[in-house]
Structure formats: structure tokens, C-alpha cells
Amino acid sequence: MIIDENEKKKEEKNERLLIDLCECYLTLEDEFSSEFLSICIPCLLSAASDKEDSKEAKKEVEIALLALSRIGACHFIHEQYLNEIKEIIQYHQVHRNLTYLAYQSAWRLLIYRILKDDSLEGMIVDATHFVREERKELEELAKSVDWKRKKVGDGEKEAKELLFIERWLNAIYDHLCFCTSWSEEFVELIGRIVGKIQESWYQNSI
């Protein structure tokens, strides 16, 4: 269906259907063929580049980026598309137009690429300021979580925030595994995370 829809002439093509099909494919499959990725990546990046500020548009962007973040490190993504991901991240840093999940998904997609191309470290560390953004997001999320509680409550909001924190920590783990560049900012970030873990442990032990 993806191939059939993609091969239609522009005036006959149903772009919304193609986006939905690509999102389903990346979300439900575990192994991706290069043929399908060559269709799905530009299609979903186009959807993810929507700068409209409505709630519906933000949700569509979130779903597109979440689907794209399923593409593992073993798959090649053309430099043109990596630049588009960088632009999505940089636009958000100025305008704050993405949801938490969308922003994390964009980072995950970009960081996974380092395994194939370590020259991307410059884009991640310098051009998009991964460490600075990681610290900012974690500090903001940490303020909304009651670390003194013995158990996570039933509150949906707090449960989501804990999930976001976990995803950011996973991104840090990937960065540590794949990157060789260390800076004072990165050392400070790790120090703050360790400090927060120690604080949480202390508060829950008394």
C-alpha cells in the first residue's frame, strides 16, 4: 500500500493516507527495508516539519517523530534528512513548538546515527547543544516529580513525567556509548544527575 500510494501522480496521491501508512509501518515492524525507509523518512520528516501551533498539528508532529525514532542505529539516513532533523530541533529551541515526546524522539533519531557516522558528534554537541538541552529538560521535569514519595502515585501527569525522564536518561546513555567528545558541560550534567539520584536515595531512606 505504501509503494502504491507513493507511486501515484501528485494530484492523485493521498498524502494523509501515506503518512498514516508510514507511521504504522515504522511503529509495528521491527525490521525495516531500505526501500520502505526511502519512502517513509522524507514523508514523515515533511509531516514533522509542520510549524503550525495548533494542538492537532503538534500531535501529528509528535506521532511522526515518534515513528521515526524507531529507526535503529543500523539503518543509514541520508545527510539531507539529518540536516532536516537538526533544523526541527533548532527551531524548537527558539520557538518551543514541540511536545516533550516529540523533542525526545527527534534527539533519539539523531543520536542513533553516531554509530554509523561519528562525524555527527559536532552536530549533536555543538550545533544542537545536546548537553545544554538535556540538562534543561531534566531539571524542568525533575521539579514536577515528588522524589520523597515511596511509590509513584496514580497521577497520570507524574507518571508521564517519569517516563520522559527515563527517555532522557536513555538518550544520555546512548550519547555516552557512541560519543567520544566530553566537555565541562557534559561533566556537569552527569554530576547533577548523580546528585539528584543521591538526593532521592537519601530522602527515601529517612
Rank of each mutant, 00 (worst) to 15 (best):
Y25G: 13
A127D: 15
L98A: 08
G153M: 08
L115P: 03
Y91E: 10
E199F: 03
C43Y: 00
D50T: 11
L163A: 08
C179P: 03
I2D: 06
I193H: 01
R70Y: 09
L44M: 09
E35V: 14
A127I: 10
E161D: 09
D154P: 08
K10V: 09
I2L: 14
R135C: 15
G72V: 06
C43M: 09
E188L: 04
E133N: 06
E29R: 11
F76I: 11
V194F: 15
K55E: 13
V61Q: 00
L37P: 05
Q90Y: 11
E121K: 06
S144C: 11
V131D: 09
S33T: 15
E35I: 03
C22R: 00
S200P: 04
M1R: 07
L82H: 04
K157D: 00
D126Q: 14
E139M: 07
R113N: 05
Q104V: 02
G195P: 04
C24I: 14
R108N: 14
F130A: 12
E184K: 05
L110R: 04
E56G: 12
S38N: 14
H75C: 05
E56F: 13
K58P: 05
W201I: 04
D30W: 07
V94H: 08
K59P: 01
L65R: 13
I2Q: 02
S183Y: 11
N6K: 02
I197H: 02
I165A: 01
L101R: 02
L115A: 15
T180P: 01
N6M: 06
Y173C: 00
V187C: 01
E79I: 03
A106M: 06
E166V: 02
C177Q: 13
K151R: 12
I39Y: 09
